[in-house]
């Protein structure tokens, strides 16, 4: 009876029920997440003053270095804009970085996802790219009012275009959880046949802006060995993703800026 009733239930109704139950749980998740933050705060408070002062000094140095880099980046950005205008290049996609705390992670053999504390209210939409300081995290899979589910790049069934660092030909990465526990891996496919990598000289996979989800050059993972694909046209191999992916507490969601979302494709 129950099976039949569930099967016959209209999909919009199922979705509504699901969303309702999800929203019902959000406050408790947030409470847990705040609790963890509070825990970290009190752990921080437990530090001695001298330690805090020395850490503050280190931080100030880093801030100084970063401030210089920001200035340099700004001048490079302007230079780039001038070049692009000269060459009449189509505008590149630009993004707003929406920083979000991770309420909890759900990573195991069955799924690779995390819930973050930003949602529809913050302008997040399904399919937005998610990154962290070390590179690509994944994509927004589902958006709720104040939370979103992020599907990790390691997730089975996740696919994204990428390039090998220094190359332009797009290949693609597919999540594939196997290998050692806690070591995220995936498959890289459609690698140009001329590409060669070795454990001593691994290939670094970076994002490409061609797919309009991520900007160019964000680190994804590395590949140390490539073998010929079954159709003989490409090479493929196992990607090793950074292990921090499974221990993230904060990510940034890439929200495309409206002016660039409708950029016409440049047809060859």
């Amino acid at each position: 009876m129950l099976f039949l009733a569930w099967a016959l239930l209209p999909i919009p109704l199922k979705k509504a029920v699901r969303n309702g139950f999800h929203e019902f749980q959000v406050p408790s998740w947030e409470a847990l997440s705040w609790g963890r933050d509070l825990q970290n705060f009190w752990a921080g408070r437990a530090n001695r003053h001298s330690e805090l002062i020395s850490q503050g000094r280190d931080l100030a140095r880093l801030n100084g270095a970063f401030r210089l880099q920001v200035m340099e980046n700004e001048s490079l950005r302007q230079e780039l804009q001038r070049m692009e205008a000269l060459l009449d290049l189509p505008p590149r996609p630009r993004y707003r970085y929406e920083v979000a705390r991770v309420t909890h992670r759900q990573i195991g053999t069955w799924w690779h996802e995390m819930v973050v504390r930003k949602g529809r209210d913050d302008g997040i939409t399904e399919g937005n790219g998610v990154v962290y300081a070390g590179g690509v995290v994944g994509k927004v899979q589902k958006v709720y009012e104040g939370t979103s589910i992020v599907r990790l790049v390691t997730s089975p069934g996740f696919r994204m275009p990428a390039t090998l660092h220094g190359q332009t030909q797009p290949l693609f990465i597919q999540g594939l959880q196997h290998g050692s526990i806690g070591k995220p891996t995936g498959r890289v496919r459609n690698v140009p046949i001329s590409s060669n990598v070795t454990p001593e000289n691994p290939g670094y996979l970076v994002s490409t802006s061609l797919g309009q989800v991520f900007p160019n050059g964000l680190h994804i993972g590395k590949v140390e060995h490539l073998e010929q694909s079954s159709n003989g046209l490409f090479r493929e191999g196992t990607v090793q993703f950074p292990s921090e992916l499974y221990n993230l507490n904060e990510v940034a969601i890439l929200v495309p800026l409206p002016s660039t979302t409708k950029t016409a494709l440049k047809r060859n």
Binding site: G127, G157, F158, R159, M160, P161, T168, Q169, P170, F172, Q174, T208, L210, G211, Q212, V213, L265, K266
Partner: peptide, 13 residues
């Protein structure tokens, strides 16, 4: 290449 990448990104597996 751009169309290929877009489809890879946006087509479900």
């Amino acid at each position: 290449a751009e169309e290929y990448a877009r489809l890879l990104d946006q087509l479900p597996l």
